[in-house]
């Protein structure tokens, strides 16, 4: 059961991180360079999970994903199943909840780019795709590393939103943090200790990676 929960958590965090990168790169790029008057509105929406109690976000997502909600009805129409209390539901919730942890480091990295280097690449004949892979990606690699690490680890550690939207279904929506809560409730302190210590060590290593990457990159 413990292994199944850990694997499910890793699966959820991996899928969430990939989706966040796919959405986050163009959105962060837009936020970094746009002069649109909607910029601050979009930035505020993205940052809402930083200040909102997870239960509030979870509550509204549950309503939206339920059988009477817009997302729930769309899901039932296309797949025959509701999003509430499903793995797909907690993926959507995790994407929304972890979004600022991916968008903000990427946006900050893009804002620090010297835009003229991208123009120099285009003037030297590079396609936009080549300019992105050969100039933008390596020059903002620390931002990408931070975004990936924070997006992944924040999803691993989330509790409130997942519990509200996904409940506690072993093998479907029961992630590590929820399993720890259930173990403590049923006085299984030994198992709770194993998972908690695992999360603690994981969180420490993640932060070590993020903070440790800076001097390493500077030395080059």
């Amino acid at each position: 059961m413990v292994l199944e929960t850990v694997l499910l958590t890793i699966k959820l965090a991996s899928i969430t991180t990939v989706i966040l990168l796919i959405i986050g790169v163009p959105l962060s790029w837009w936020l970094a360079f746009t002069q649109s008057r909607w910029k601050s509105t979009v930035e505020s929406i993205v940052a809402i999970p930083l200040v909102l109690p997870p239960t509030v976000l979870g509550f509204y997502l549950l309503i939206l994903m339920g059988a009477n909600g817009f997302l729930g009805q769309a899901s039932i129409f296309f797949s025959g199943e509701s999003l509430a209390f499903s793995f797909s539901g907690i993926v959507i919730a995790s994407v929304l909840y972890s979004m600022p942890f991916v968008i903000q480091p990427l946006q900050s990295a893009f804002e620090k780019l010297n835009y003229k280097t991208i123009e120099a690449a285009l003037l030297l004949g590079a396609s936009k795709r080549r300019a992105f892979y050969s100039i933008v990606l390596p020059m903002s690699r620390r931002g990408f590393l931070t975004a990936i690490v924070l997006g992944f680890s924040h999803t691993v550690g989330e509790f409130g939103v997942v519990l509200m939207v996904g409940g506690n279904i072993p093998g479907e929506t029961q992630v590590v943090s929820i399993a720890i809560y259930e173990m403590v409730e049923s006085l299984e302190y030994g198992n709770a200790h194993v998972l908690s210590m695992g999360l603690l060590v994981f969180s420490f290593l993640v932060l070590l990676l993020v903070y440790g990457s800076q001097p390493r990159l500077k030395r080059r």
């Binding site: 123009e119 004949g125 100039i135 390596p138």
Partner: peptide, 19 residues
């Protein structure tokens, strides 16, 4: 498109690829 014009440009701050 800019990629097909063959323009050599030297920017004020050089815009070298730092990496």
């Amino acid at each position: 498109p800019v990629q097909h014009r063959k323009v050599g440009m030297v920017f004020q701050d050089y815009a070298l690829f730092e990496h």
